[in-house]
């Protein structure tokens, strides 16, 4: 299954039945840092909004594409909120991955992680994005990762999602 997470104003229609689209509309609460998605109700957030089971949606996807506005070399708040609320994709146990400590993966390894970033971007922010994409892919267990920079969402037309 393929998952597209985006913060665009317009909707994205899934290309096929194997593709799922998650619109980051910001109509949800931020992570409260309780870890109950690990210790109390596994893979379920305590907050009862549209992201309550988002870790299951992300966890069951093989390929994930994130389309986000650039915010200081990181994700927009609406997209970052989804990621913060999805730590249930991993378990509370820890292991070594890429030579560093990380959590073990509830859903095993995934295939690809692609981040498409639009908006004004400095050179320093672009370098941060490259590091961020690599770190996220390692942390969440993706075999490959890719960072794509575009200047505006209109450029998405020519890019394979």
């Amino acid at each position: 299954m393929k998952l597209i997470i985006h913060d665009l104003a317009r909707d994205i229609e899934p290309a096929d039945t194997e593709t799922r689209v998650l619109k980051a509309d910001g109509k949800y609460a931020p992570c409260q840092g309780c870890f109950h998605c690990w210790t109390k109700n596994p893979a379920t957030c305590d907050l009862k909004d549209s992201l309550q089971e988002v870790c299951r949606v992300i966890g069951t996807a093989d390929d994930v594409t994130v389309i986000t506005e650039n915010w200081y070399g990181g994700y927009s708040p609406a997209v970052k909120n989804i990621m913060d609320r999805a730590i249930g994709t991993s378990t509370p146990f820890s292991t070594y991955r890429g030579g560093q400590m990380h959590h073990t993966l509830r859903y095993g390894m995934h295939e690809s992680y692609k981040v498409i970033v639009y908006g004004d971007m400095t050179e320093a922010e672009e370098n941060t994005w490259k590091l961020m994409t690599e770190r996220n892919a390692c942390n969440e267990g993706y075999r490959t990762h890719e960072f794509v920079r575009i200047s505006s969402p209109e450029e998405l037309e020519g890019i394979a999602l």
Partner: peptide
Amino acid sequence: CADIFFVISSVIDLGIFRGWLSAKKPS
């Protein structure tokens, strides 16, 4: 230490009995 902490927390919170490490699908 972290693993032991989370095992104890999960026993107290009962999460260990609710499909603690399982790959749960969306409802």
